Simulated assay, not measured.
Amino acid sequence: MMPLSQHPNLADHVGNPLAPAPQMTGQERSVLNSLRMAAMGCRVAARTDLFEACAFLTVEGEDAKRTFVDTFVRCLSATLNKRIKWHSPGVTETSFDEAWVMRCLTSIWEEDNSSLTFLLTSRVPLADRRYIGFLLGRISEQFPRN
């Protein structure tokens, strides 16, 4: 398996937070912008405990997309124990954090469980992997790849 720092979609982001964006489809760019919008709204919101947040996520329909995205964005920083770099919606550059999230979603869409496991293992503590994986899975369902 290829090291994360050598992955073609992420290699340019190691040590260079303003590297050109990895190749993304229009739909993937739309998903990223949705995550960025949620991050803007969640900056002032209280942090959420990951376990409690996942326990209450039983919504369906239109509210599901917003709820899963907001919960993921609110919990990711605490899970990784660092501030997540989200650019403003529409910015063509992607941060390392954004590229990592998009690569996780791409792995889910492509049913590439090995890559997803590697990506989660590379950054997410063992105790939180199941919850972050759950949220990523629900987000991927809300933004199905065409």
Score class of each variant (00 low, 15 high):
Cys104Glu: 03
Val69Ser: 09
Lys85Glu: 14
Gly133Trp: 01
Pro20Gln: 08
Met2Arg: 09
Thr79Trp: 14
Ala53Tyr: 02
Phe72Met: 02
Ala11Thr: 05
Ala11Ser: 14
Gln6Lys: 09
Val101Thr: 04
Arg29Glu: 11
Thr121Glu: 12
Ala78Lys: 14
Val91Asp: 09
Ile139Gln: 07
Arg36Glu: 10
His87Lys: 11
Arg123Tyr: 06
Gly41Met: 09
Thr92His: 09
His13Gln: 06
Ser107Leu: 03
Pro8Leu: 10
Ala11Gln: 15
Pro17Gln: 10
Gln142Ile: 01
Gln142His: 03
Arg130Lys: 08
Leu35Gly: 06
Leu50Val: 15
His13Arg: 01
Glu93Pro: 00
Tyr131His: 03
Leu116Arg: 00
Asp128Met: 09
Gln27Leu: 14
Ala53Trp: 02
Glu111Gln: 13
Thr71Cys: 07
Met37Ala: 11
Met1Arg: 07
Asp112Phe: 09
Pro144Gly: 04
Ala45Met: 13
Ser115Gly: 07
Ala55Thr: 14
Pro8Lys: 03
Leu136Lys: 00
Arg47Pro: 00
Gly133Phe: 00
Glu98Arg: 02
Trp86Met: 12
Ala39Leu: 11
Leu126Trp: 15
Ala55Tyr: 00
Leu76Arg: 01
Leu76Ser: 01
Phe72His: 05
Thr58Gly: 15
Thr48Cys: 15
Thr92Met: 12
Asn33Glu: 14
Met1Glu: 05
Met40Tyr: 12
Val69Thr: 15
Phe96Asp: 03
Cys104Pro: 01
Ser107Met: 02
Gln23Asn: 13
Asp49Glu: 15
Gly15Ser: 00
Phe68Leu: 06
Leu105Met: 13
Thr48Asn: 13
Ile84Leu: 15
Glu111Ser: 11
Trp100Ala: 03
Tyr131Thr: 01
Gly26Ile: 05
Val73Phe: 05
Thr94Pro: 01
Val69Ala: 14
Phe72Arg: 01
Val73Asp: 12
Ser77Ala: 15
Ser30Asp: 14
Leu35Ala: 03
Ser122Gln: 02
Asp70Pro: 07
Arg74Ser: 15
Ala39Asp: 09
Ile139Met: 08
Ser34Pro: 04
Asp12Ser: 15
Pro3His: 10
Ser140Leu: 09
Glu141Lys: 00
Val59Asn: 14
Ile132Trp: 00
Asp63Val: 11
Met1Gln: 06
Leu10Asn: 05
Ser88Gly: 08
Glu28Asn: 11
Cys54Arg: 02
